[in-house]
């Protein structure tokens, strides 16, 4: 599968998300995703490959989320300044 960053993805449960950013952290890829129909549904997920299928696994590890959050924030700000 190609890189999902800046893509519109459709999940098996029919929900659609925009992948706002993806980050490679300690061998794993994490995505910041935004629900197309619900702006309140923003989350960081782990992008995994299971049996050849790409799956977005919700993150529950608070320490990991705390680590990833500023990294995403920084990336977003860089992207925003590049757009301007």
């Amino acid at each position: 599968m190609d890189k999902l960053e800046y893509a519109l993805v459709t999940l098996k449960n029919n929900k659609q998300y925009f992948v706002l950013e993806d980050i490679l952290y300690q061998y794993d890829t994490y995505d910041l995703i935004l629900n197309v129909e619900d702006e309140n549904d923003v989350k960081i997920v782990l992008q995994e490959v299971k049996n050849g299928k790409t799956v977005f696994t919700p993150l529950e590890d608070k320490d990991l989320l705390k680590t990833l959050s500023p990294l995403f924030e920084e990336r977003i700000k860089i992207k925003q300044s590049n757009i301007k």
Binding site: M1, D2, L4, Y6, A7, L8, V9, T10, L11, K12, N13, F18, V45, K50, N51, K53, T54, V55, F56, T57, P58
Partner: peptide, 14 residues
């Protein structure tokens, strides 16, 4: 083991 509801079934660069 492909019944994961969060499986990406389609994507499009936007």
């Amino acid at each position: 083991n492909i019944s994961d509801e969060n499986e990406v079934v389609d994507y499009e660069a936007r």
